[in-house]
Write a protein that binds this DNA or RNA. Sequence first.
DNA 1: AATATGTGCGCAAACGTTTGCGCAAACTGA
DNA 2: TCAGTTTGCGCAAACGTTTGCGCACATATT
Lengths: 341, 341
Amino acid sequence: MSSILTPPAPRRATVVTLSELAGVAPSTVTRALKGDTRISKKTRDLILGLAKEHGYMPNALARTLSSGKSGLYGLVLGSAENPFYMELLHEATRQAEKLGFRLLIIHAGGGPIEDITAQALIQYQVDGCIISSAILSSHAAEICARNHVPLVMVNRVALAHGCFVTCDNRAGGAEIARLMIARGRRRFGLVYTASSSSTSREREEGFVSELEQAGLKLTVRIDGHSNYDGGFAAGQEIAALLAQERPDAIFALSDIMAMGVLDGLRLASVNVPEDIAVAGFDGLASSARPIYDLTTIQQPLPLMIQRAFELLQARTLDPSLPDELIAMRGKLIIRGSTGQT
Amino acid sequence: MSSILTPPAPRRATVVTLSELAGVAPSTVTRALKGDTRISKKTRDLILGLAKEHGYMPNALARTLSSGKSGLYGLVLGSAENPFYMELLHEATRQAEKLGFRLLIIHAGGGPIEDITAQALIQYQVDGCIISSAILSSHAAEICARNHVPLVMVNRVALAHGCFVTCDNRAGGAEIARLMIARGRRRFGLVYTASSSSTSREREEGFVSELEQAGLKLTVRIDGHSNYDGGFAAGQEIAALLAQERPDAIFALSDIMAMGVLDGLRLASVNVPEDIAVAGFDGLASSARPIYDLTTIQQPLPLMIQRAFELLQARTLDPSLPDELIAMRGKLIIRGSTGQT
DNA sequence: AATATGTGCGCAAACGTTTGCGCAAACTGA
DNA sequence: TCAGTTTGCGCAAACGTTTGCGCACATATT
């Protein structure tokens, strides 16, 4: 408590206080602020002037209570270790701001989304949720379904209810295989992720099926644990193989693992791309660093986020719309880690 | 519109619907759910049972309207390129969840916070805001001050109004200098950031003043532009110096720049730490990677975030509390990039 | 029996905004 | 002049939760 008595801070301007100043009803103020031409121009101008003069800012919470739309979207992010999620966060934030929305962080990091976390989606009346990683428990998914919270999963498919925007992972894996084969590589290794995620499985399937069509197959398959350290360990393990047993091409299912592989190989004095070609997937900004110079499949992140918001907004307007799955072709970025043509 | 007429989804349980089911007043339901012992145990148990049975979840927005506390905290993040902000986001999210709060992304990336973005803080009645980068315009800062939004800046000091939790940057810079001197280094370079931020200035001041006390001085000072690419370019520039003109110790004012410096030196075949010792600041997880093995000052991020929430919560309870600045000593992590003892 | 105190709840208004419904006055055409 | 239409607004309730104030009834004390 302040030892010097001060009068309470004047309350901030509200629709009601503006209506009193203008001598009109609160509903008139609301309509004037919205530009409703049923309110005369003279009255609208008066109210807009007062609103500006008094620094009026609408209370988004009261507005939500009354209109049912919060302008909030939930965001679920994956591991702190993978810069892909930071890029996704920035892109989602940029597009949300453009659309006049705000992002509520529902979950960040590994592990499933706890029920109490999913309940935040309902409690804050989010207009939808973008999930880029983590798994909703079946109970949490049921809570969302029952409360009509539109969900879009970006970069993976793992829900019984919701929409999906992914990269076309199979096509991407196949493209990497074709490039490696075209460059004359013949012994292939995979650094994968032993999770149940569709992303890894599809990338691997695309890669392997393309090899098989060329009468080739994987000779090494190492779990890179979805992270840099796992990729690094895989790189060391590959480097430790006898040169004639070693694959001459490695596909890591994500850029973060690929960069680990590259560093592991490099510290073991294995030459890339001379001895081993390395490719990744995701298109991280850091994959372009000279020290990596990584060939990769670049996910069309801005467009994926744009589609995600479109899917959510459409389902805010019409909750009965059927779920959609959108797969977008990634772009092959050929760099030094797979050698030059 | 569904072609098959379906009854509207039953509305979710509210305090009012629970009161009708229980045959009590809504205020009784609210009090029972809060455990108010003025409501008899029998009635409380009845209401709790009904709440559970009907999957009641309080509407956080209505609650805010009525109680004045939203449980939302704003978060402002810096550049997508610096993993420090991802680590900060994850730690802030983890601690917020523990406290029962949610984080609203106010801004992410470079550039000042626009007024319309700052207004979101007021519109969503956030209980406070953690700012880790970016600058509030003076108008935005005034909006927050006038509306009593507690602000805490983490990792820098740049506001006329608000609290600050930073690492003790000067002490950290001085520690790096002492280590380098103790290792016999005598020609010093700095990779800095030409921004007005207090963080960079203080780290540099700590480093330089310690050198001067030992009768030493900077011989090279290169702008690393706060990012990896700038650090990399600086590393290349340093490598391009004649060996006898080259510094034998480099302090980069952040880990992300230090990693760029290391890569730039490495690609130019300059040996670290034999030819040049390199140190950074921040304590990023990736600084521990074998390929960097970076000596750094590790910011006590979990404690900084904890203090930030404490400062915000205290000011929610008592808006008249004076601003506080808390500086915390970082921890010197000695790794291979500065050589062994 | 009367009075004081304790217990267990309810009333009512508020928080800030929105919108369906409808009224009064002005205008138009016959 | 009158009926119908248009214009410009207001009323009132709602959205969901909270809480100050106070009532009715039970209990204890004198």
